[in-house]
Design a protein around this nucleic acid. Sequence first.
DNA 1: TCGGTATTTTAGTTTCATCTAAAGTGGGCC
DNA 2: GGCCCACTTTAGATGAAACTAAAATACCGA
Lengths: 125, 125
Amino acid sequence: MGRVTAQVLAAVSSPRRQEILRLVWRDELAAGELSAAMPDVSFGAVSLQLKVLLEAGLVERRVDGQRRLYRARPEALGAVGAALERMWDDALWKLTLAAELAESRRGPRRRARQTSRPTSSRSTR
Amino acid sequence: MGRVTAQVLAAVSSPRRQEILRLVWRDELAAGELSAAMPDVSFGAVSLQLKVLLEAGLVERRVDGQRRLYRARPEALGAVGAALERMWDDALWKLTLAAELAESRRGPRRRARQTSRPTSSRSTR
DNA sequence: TCGGTATTTTAGTTTCATCTAAAGTGGGCC
DNA sequence: GGCCCACTTTAGATGAAACTAAAATACCGA
């Protein structure tokens, strides 16, 4: 099991990054697919959070053509990963997720999407 | 075992609060004794962090005369608590703590201590 | 080489956690 | 009451995290 360091705790403490981890916990997703699943933040913001997670060793990246596929590394999270899974299974958690994300917002409030939605690319690969 | 919520993760993610938790992990300490053990922050700052930990259920408070004794609640942290203990045992952690505390500082930089050091009160109780 | 798509990085903005200093609260003792 | 002591809370300051929009980079196919 991976060692839980202060860096790991810091990376996992952000609701936004928890959301990303949940989305790539079992299956890998392209950065754009992740971004599409989180309509309230820009692609750039997602990419920056992925970088944080990558540097903490909490996700791994695989190149596929022009796409970058991300997948969580649960083994890096050890006991904290199990705690996250329990959190996600918890019904109460689902009810409070939106509120927590809203609370955790620090940057400027969103006005419109940066780019037109990624056109559910199915062609590459 | 206590449930690890997003609030709990947020509370343990701060190096300053990790330091506090470590100090009251086994034995209870008065707020002033805690503050004396952390000479680089004011009494007020310690009190505020204790409040955060208290509200997250990670410490408990006991009144003793004019003193407030704090003790960690490891059971509230479940497996994450064990991860913390491992972190504290790690030699590398000790080397990086100071740096992380420095990095995590957000408020104004310290010039002098707010009050004269608590005079190692041994009389009450 | 060119154009399009996918992603990352940069530059600049906003919000909030953390801090300090000082004021406030409350217990204990004379 | 009046004083001191231990602690908490408030008001204000500061810096870093998280964000957006836009520019830069990377890869592919024609």
